[in-house]
Structure formats: C-alpha cells, structure tokens
Design a protein around this nucleic acid. Sequence first.
DNA 1: TGTCCATTTGCAACATTGTTGCATAAAAAG
DNA 2: CTTTTTATGCAACAATGTTGCAAATGGACA
Lengths: 138, 138
Amino acid sequence: MLQMDIMQLFKERRLRATPARVSTLDVLLAAGRALSHHEVEDALADKGERLDRVTLYRTLDFLVEESLAHRLSGEDRTWRFSAQGSHTGHAHPHFRCERCGMTRCLSDLKPAMVVGLPEGYVFQQAELTIRGLCPGCT
Amino acid sequence: MLQMDIMQLFKERRLRATPARVSTLDVLLAAGRALSHHEVEDALADKGERLDRVTLYRTLDFLVEESLAHRLSGEDRTWRFSAQGSHTGHAHPHFRCERCGMTRCLSDLKPAMVVGLPEGYVFQQAELTIRGLCPGCT
DNA sequence: TGTCCATTTGCAACATTGTTGCATAAAAAG
DNA sequence: CTTTTTATGCAACAATGTTGCAAATGGACA
Ligand SMILES: [Mn+2]
Ligand SMILES: [Mn+2]
Ligand SMILES: [Zn+2]
Ligand SMILES: [Zn+2]
C-alpha cells in the first residue's frame, strides 16, 4: 500500500493524517507480521523517520483504537502490533516462533490448515486460551 | 497439602527446603489458580512471611525450574505462576477472566468440556496460538 | 493563502515488572 | 560444631510502558 493511499484512508475516515501515523501504518502493512514497539521504531529509523518513543506508543494505540491495527501480548511481556485490524477482535489464531519470537496472524488460514501449518513452519505446541468472565465477575 | 508434606517433598528431591520455598509453594497450592508475583507477595504477607522481592522472583523461577509450578504470560505483561507443574509443558488450556484477570488451568477438563466451561464461567472468546519455529529459524 | 483552534507531538518525570552482582546468612552434610 | 554449598537481602540497573504539560502543527474556514 502506498503512502498516498494511506493518507487517503485517514482522510476518508476524518482522522488527522500526520507523518507519524502514516509512516507507522505503512511499516505495519509492509511487515506482514506483528511488530513490537521497538521493531516499529527500528523500521521507522530505516526510513529516516525520527519519532519520539512516547509518540510512537500513542500512535500505535491510536491505530488500534481506530481498528486499523490490533494488539497482542507476547510471551516476552511486550505488545505486538499488526495491521489488518479488520478481522474482528483478533479472535483468530496466531503463530509465534519459540526461538526468535516472530509472530504472525493465521487469520487467512482455513481451520483445517491450522493443523497443517504453512510451508516452512515447525509445529511444537498448540495453546488454547479461553477468555470470558469468571464466577466472581458475572 | 500441609507445610510438613511440602518439606518432605523437597527433601525427597534433594532440594533445599527453605522457608521461602515452602511458604511460596504452599501459597500456590492453596490458591488453585495462577497467581502473579504481586499476588503471591500479598498472600505471603497475610501469613506473616516477609520475603524480599528478588528472593520471591528467584523462588518462583526455582519452582518452575524444578517442575513444581509452571509459568504463563498474562495479557497485562506479568507472569503468573500455578502449582501442579506435573502436567507436561503446561500444554493445556487456560481460562482468563476479561474483567479481573483471574487465570486458572483447565488441565483437568476433558476436551469436550473445554467447549462447555465449568459452571459459573462465561465464554467470550477462544484464542488458539500455535507455537513452534518460523521458516527463518528452522 | 493566511488565521485559528483542537489535536498531536516531544520532553521530562514517573510507574511497574523483572534482572544482576555481590556480600552475608543459612541449609544440610559429615 | 564445623565446613561447604547454596539461598537470601540489598542496591543498582534494565526494559517497557504511562502521565502531565508546553510547544508545534494539521486541517477547517475565511
Ligand atoms: Mn492477529
Ligand atoms: Mn496452566
Ligand atoms: Zn523464528
Ligand atoms: Zn473475574
């Protein structure tokens, strides 16, 4: 997706198309996987963008708020951000590499293919987490 | 499980049965759910135990290392610890309350019962995470 | 194109969670 | 009781994320 198209996207939604937001969403879209705050920071640096740490945190929150990205918690106590916020509530499976932490959404896979991972991925473990309300909170 | 039995357990395994370890495992066993570092600290305080923050971190790590507990990452960037480390690799489903964060293992449930949660729990979402190695790490 | 105002940004300070180094205390073996 | 090994407490540090506030700026409108 071109930067110009991203700016157009913001304008259609009546959201301020600031450089920080356009560049950040651009990075997420180009990555094709979930990126940590730090990884986004690095990717922005590669493009010659200098962005304050706090601004980036707020920008990522903004994108999630506007459903342009979604956020998932990593095993390493950091948030990861992925574009494609469209698929509702990110209630889809994810893949995380046990060695390097690389995380990507598996939302485009049919259920049958979750068992058979995409080429090149090695299955080690499936973790199923049920979320909801406990007896004390109902 | 009695404190004395816990001490016995350590001795059988040739592990040093220090007050910190016995009390901490006691707290985890009594909880019946996964506790954060902070929650363990509070529970110990209730029992009149004073334990250094760092010592507790190391004690919890020790219990995980010895397979007397297992550790899971929460949505709030904190580790949770649960006794019953016996079930291998904690490759079992968990339940987390979306409101208060209460987390417990569902390891004692048959697969059919995962869909139908125990009485009092409200289902909201199932998240499946596949873990393994990505193409770059194989 | 210039003006204005709500919003965004950068900076400093702070909070939380967890880790490391090292001297001292204590467990368990003999 | 003495010795040896290991665990503990303390201080300092690191990583990740948040909050308050003044200054900059995006976009609407004249
Ligand atoms: Mn996702
Ligand atoms: Mn568990
Ligand atoms: Zn990897
Ligand atoms: Zn609850």
